[in-house]
Amino acid sequence: MSGEKFSLYNYHKTFDKDILISFKGPFDKHILAIIGNYIEVILGRNPKAGKKIFKIFIELAQNIAYYSAEGKSNFNTESGIGTLVIGEFDNHYSFVAGNVVKASDIVHIIEKSEIINSLDREGLRQYKREQRNLPQGERGSAHIGLIQVALTAASPLDIEVSPINEEYSFFTISVNVEK
């Protein structure tokens, strides 16, 4: 954060819809457990969508915890920092997660996301099976997670990349889950 005073009111105004949760901070395992429980409780009234949201949450949260370029002073000593917003609309829930990514890694993530979005459900299942069958070590773990997110949401991955500077970009992924 720069030297200017942080306006909580501006932050508050950013959200004009029904927000079930918004969080920015370290994707620490204890925090993830609390958010995970909370998702299960609040979405208990819609167990099918709730379970999907929970599954998406776990996959994307783990990606952020492991791969966010923000927050890790040393390898594995801290959890990555990321941002998460879950919103509720008339017919769907929206799930948005984002984190800082090294600019050099972004091309690869976008390529994978484009492959995922180009496939229909059967194609996606086949792609997942292929990736899962790769020998240990070759398995690009973040990507199986993304494939699973697309399958679980049954909707395309909406990807956005906002360059921060030459070295880093902010990567946002949004998916909708029907109620």
Partner: peptide, 12 residues
Amino acid sequence: TYFNTSSSRCIL
């Protein structure tokens, strides 16, 4: 009733 993707590889 639930498993994440890393567990899914171990199940395979």
